[in-house]
Design a protein around this nucleic acid. Structure first.
Length: 836
RNA sequence: GCGAGAGUGGCGGAACAGGCAGACGCACCGGAUUUAGGAUCCGGCGGUUUACACCGUGGGGGUUCAAAUCCCCCCUCUCGCACCA
């Protein structure tokens, strides 16, 4: 029985209830079919789903539903990245508890997801704020600590005065806190770090494994972020030692220019900066410069237009190879936290050094000779930064830059003055947060034993929930006696717990693996389950996570592998990555402050989940940003109504699929054959497009098939053969559409008498014979310009085609009086006649 | 500046490997149906032109029988990185 009108709300709720009751999309770890692990980046439970979520999860859901129908054992889990700052902010603002706020949001967003009909494996749902989850993270931390992959160090940290927390360099955007956009200041603190730099080379090299599976630009971004450069380290001995320091070490990518050094520049923040000042007068000058540079630290220094400034310290170092005196300067363009905080000054071959030398009258010495010319160094207008032949470089004269630089580095090594070196831009990951709503770092401080890791059997170190957030937003943990006061795991005496919590990026660095056996209690993972499911076959999320999250997850995968948690052959967590574009409205990203948010719930209430899903997929290819359109979603709604009407109005004609399996004889006439052909073409096209994640064109192909069905119902008669052709095409349209609009398709499938669930039906296949045509339309060109078309029999050979083309009136009109020089025939497509 | 990507009708976008540019949808126009509106169904819809024809995928060159697609130069936009030694 099919109702006359399509009422999405009723049928959607009905199917959602059935799916939930049957755990319809739960994966079975012991299912022997080939696996497919599809994952979308899990959401932060911020309150409500927004359109970006809807799109992200719709993309993943269609992929999952297609793979299931194609016979794969599909894992498609969901969970909540549930620790984090917004919960604390909301708690302060609303006088509630971060946990209460978080769990309420999770309940709300879970309901919204269910309302959208996503085919998730709900029994595997996780929330990272639960001790059952973060206890394993604490265990990982202890193992990292054992292996030296976690360590403590005191360092100047980015400090957000508004959030009262340290930020990783990666979380500082243009000198502002990435969350609250407050101006970031510097503060010295002891922090916990994870040694991601130990994996710098592997993280870089393994990017090669991801080529083809990851977008090129994400790979490029990661490569730049890791920022490996090869060169040499060089020690310049100080003329007179300053305290313990006997030399200044620098790193250079251009050791071939070492003989061109005429000065050195240190960052104002270099540890020796002020102590280098020679003489009382210099000391004041240097101190003033350092003060000034500190004032414009970071933010100002990121300005391109910043004028290079410096001050001579009054002290010299000695050139390691020539022994010449090299004046030591401080310069505002040298960064204390990159490399060694000092650079050698080669004005002839580095533009910054050149500008600096010109400004302060320092000599310019040319040591690389560009081909064919030998400019006067005094008249140079810019540095020559290219490669070339070494000159004025003692025994290296005449060598090319590349080998010459290596030879210089080797000599330095031999003489104990440096040597070949590599430099990474990547720095260790600071995971300490002075926050409450995060996973406690499982260490204690004991007056007798010092720093003591918590014992693994004492995990989890549970985050206490009976706390009250103060108005200032500062962590209540240090003031929570019951948490802080504890027993030393080593001596049993009184001790204090670490009150810093972990960066929430730690939770999201391994959650994809936890899903493989999410309810396991005695260990984080089951080895068999890991081997079965990992790596994730397709990972879908926003490109804004291209660096941080994805790099950390890659690092964790390698580290957990080396710690024995992951199989030894697993090096990369995500085989394929799809970065979806943003949903814009009125040309801008949707945001509350801009007042251009479209609420998914409102849209679902108005049009139904199927329409919302369909529009999100139809409006643009997944990687591209798309513009929300109120008129556009009307179009999607109209289409689904049209599909419904086709089945409602043709219910007499439509047979269940089982009754329409048939031979070719059914295609009794041209119209039936044509519909059958379009059916098979649609199967081919949608299949190809689904494989390429081109959901927009897949939907377009289904629309074409539905349009063909509408036309066919006028043309086809009531013979059993014609009914079978019509019914088969209609069933196929439903099947192809079902991943995108599962509720309506499932309903119509059932209502038109099919057995079983459409979600469990096999993905249709197509036959080449059915897509063939009797006649083909061939384009006719004269000198590359379209002049007409020609209907020919499908079997026509080249000679026949050529002859037919040459005699076609449309062609003759343009070749009359000309000599035919050449005829190009592309079988079944076109004939181009070259005449002149 | 470096790296990556993009530029096609009024709009979102098609065209997978050089082969009929504009699939599909939105908007718009016409027709049918309707008391009317809406909904629906059918048809039209790049520009110039009465027509023949010509022009047309950011701009300019090139390769080719044939270019949105390949090559060179330039412009614009988006994203990422950026005084990186």
């Amino acid at each position: 029985m099919i109702q006359k009108r399509y009422h999405p709300q009723d049928i959607e709720k009905k199917w959602q209830a059935r799916w939930l009751a049957r755990n319809a999309f739960a994966a079975d770890n012991s299912d022997a079919r080939p696996k497919c692990y599809l994952l979308e980046m899990f959401p932060y439970p911020s309150g409500d789903l927004h359109m970006g979520h809807v799109r992200n999860y719709a993309i993943g859901d269609v992929a999952a539903r297609v793979k299931r129908m194609q016979g794969f054992n599909v894992l498609h889990p969901i969970g909540w990245d549930a620790f984090g700052l917004p919960a604390e902010n909301a708690a302060v603002k609303n006088r509630t508890h971060p946990a209460a706020w978080t769990y309420a949001n999770i309940a709300n967003m879970r309901a919204q997801m269910l309302r959208l009909g996503y085919s998730y494996d709900w029994p595997r749902e996780i929330a990272t704020c639960r001790p059952e989850y973060y206890r394993f993270e604490q265990a990982f931390f202890l193992r990292f600590l054992q292996k030296g992959l976690a360590y403590r160090k005191t360092a100047p940290q980015n400090w957000c005065p508004s959030c009262h927390t340290v930020l990783a360099n990666e979380q500082v955007l243009d000198g502002l806190c990435w969350r609250c956009e407050s101006r970031v200041t510097q503060k010295n603190l002891t922090q916990w770090f994870l040694k991601i730099t130990a994996y710098g080379d592997e993280l870089l090299n393994d990017l090669a494994l991801l080529e083809g599976g990851w977008p090129e630009r994400v790979i490029a971004m990661q490569r730049n972020w890791i920022g490996k450069s090869a060169g040499a380290s060089v020690k310049f001995p100080l003329e007179k030692p300053v305290g313990d320091a006997r030399d200044i070490e620098i790193f250079t990518t251009r050791p071939d220019t070492l003989f061109g050094v005429t000065f050195m520049t240190l960052a104002p923040g270099h540890p020796l900066a002020e102590r280098l000042a020679g003489g009382r007068e210099k000391a004041a000058e240097v101190r003033a410069f350092v003060e000034r540079a500190r004032g414009m630290d970071r933010l100002a220094r990121q300005d391109d237009t910043l004028e290079k400034e410096g001050v001579f310290t009054g002290t010299c170092a000695l050139h390691p190879l020539t022994g010449e005196r090299v004046p030591l300067w401080l310069g505002n363009f040298v960064l204390a936290d990159y490399g060694t905080g000092a650079v050698m000054g080669v004005p002839a071959h580095d533009q910054r050094d050149f500008d600096f030398a010109r400004k302060y009258g320092l000599p310019v010495r040319l040591v690389i000779r560009p081909d064919g010319e030998f400019p006067d160094p005094e008249r140079l207008e810019a540095a020559w930064t290219g490669q070339g032949r070494m000159v004025n470089s003692g025994r290296f004269d005449g060598m090319e830059s590349g080998p010459g630089g290596k030879a210089v580095a080797e000599l330095l090594k031999k003489e104990g003055k440096g040597g070949p070196a590599v430099q990474f831009r990547l720095r260790d990951w600071n995971i300490s947060r002075q926050r409450y709503w995060g996973a406690p770092i499982p260490v204690v401080y004991c007056d007798r034993c010092g720093l003591v890791p918590e014992k693994e059997e004492n995990l989890p170190v549970v985050l206490p929930l009976d706390v009250t957030m103060g108005d200032d937003g500062r962590s209540p943990l240090p003031g929570t006696e019951a948490f802080v006061n504890c027993r030393c795991p080593a001596c049993g005496g009184e001790a204090r717990r670490e009150t810093d919590t972990m960066d929430t990026f730690v939770e999201s660095s391994w959650y994809f693996a936890r899903y493989t056996d999410a309810r396991k209690t005695d260990a984080p993972f089951d080895e068999q389950a890991l081997r079965r499911w990992l790596p994730v076959d397709l990972y879908i999320g926003g490109v804004e996570h291209a660096i941080l999250h994805l790099l950390y997850a890659r690092f964790f995968t390698k580290a957990l592998r080396d710690l024995g948690f992951f199989p030894p052959e697993l090096s990369e967590p995500f085989a394929r990555l799809l970065t979806q574009g943003m949903v814009l409205n009125k040309g801008r990203k949707m945001s509350k402050s801009k007042g251009n948010v479209v609420d998914p719930t409102e849209m679902t209430d108005k049009y139904g989940a199927d329409t919302v899903r369909m529009f999100c997929l139809f409006a643009a290819p997944p990687e591209r940003d798309f513009e929300w359109s109120d008129a556009g979603i009307e179009g999607s709604s109209r289409f689904l109504h049209r599909v419904w009407r086709l089945f409602a109005e043709e219910k007499e004609r439509i047979l269940p699929l089982g009754a329409c399996e048939s031979g070719d004889g059914d295609a009794a006439n041209d119209d039936a054959r044509d519909l059958r052909r379009r059916e098979h073409l649609a199967v081919r096209k949608v299949g190809e497009d689904m494989d390429r994640f081109q959901f927009n064109t897949a939907i377009a192909a289904v629309m074409e098939l539905v349009n063909a069905l509408y036309l066919a119902r006028e043309k086809l008669g009531d013979s059993p053969g014609e009914r079978r052709v019509f019914s088969s095409a209609a069933a196929t349209a439903l099947t192809l559409l079902s991943p995108v609009a599962p509720h309506i398709c499932e309903e119509l499938w059932e209502a038109s008498g099919h057995e079983g669930r459409l979600a469990e039906a096999a993905w249709p296949s197509w036959e080449a014979a059915a897509t063939a045509r009797d006649t083909l339309t061939v384009a006719l060109q004269v000198n590359g310009r379209l002049r007409g078309t020609l209907e020919v029999g499908a079997g026509a050979d080249k000679a026949a085609l050529e002859a037919a083309a040459l005699s076609a009136p449309a062609v003759r009109r343009h070749t009359d009086g000309l000599t035919v020089r050449k005829v190009i025939v592309v079988s079944g497509k076109l004939v181009n006649i070259v005449a002149g």
